[in-house]
């Protein structure tokens, strides 16, 4: 028996996404599924972050603390979780394995 696998706790944007940003919205093309999505400003900001590098929900929540309005900041963790879940369900974000020995 090997060590039990840790659940993936980081997320990354899928490769080669194409996007047009228009004002506070964006249109994103998923090159794998050939699906097109309309995203709002929060979703596109998080997607941009996850294009740069894989991040955990906590990383995304910290990022959102900086961009959300003051009255929304208390909900940054919930917002992060919901955005990642929605982007994942659209196929734009995927869970990645934690790096070896990460978080130990």
């Amino acid at each position: 028996m090997g060590e039990p696998l840790e659940p993936p706790n980081r997320f990354a944007a899928v490769s080669d996404l194409r996007a047009f940003e228009f004002d506070d919205e964006a249109i994103v093309f998923d090159p794998v599924a050939w699906d097109t999505h309309l995203l709002n400003a929060s979703a596109i900001a998080v997607l941009d972050l996850l294009v740069e590098a894989p991040r955990s929900e906590a990383d995304v929540a910290r990022f959102l603390q900086d961009v959300l309005r003051p009255e929304e900041r208390a909900n940054a963790a919930d917002f992060s979780s919901r955005l990642i879940r929605e982007l994942s369900s659209l196929g734009l974000v995927r869970a990645v394995e934690p790096s070896p020995r990460a978080n130990r």
């Binding site: 047009f20 228009f22 004002d23 919205e25 964006a26 249109i27 097109t36 309309l38």
Partner: peptide
Amino acid sequence: VKKARAFARLANNSFNYH
């Protein structure tokens, strides 16, 4: 009309976008 919305409507109204 917001441009992203216009994009979506044009794509949905296309013969071969998909």
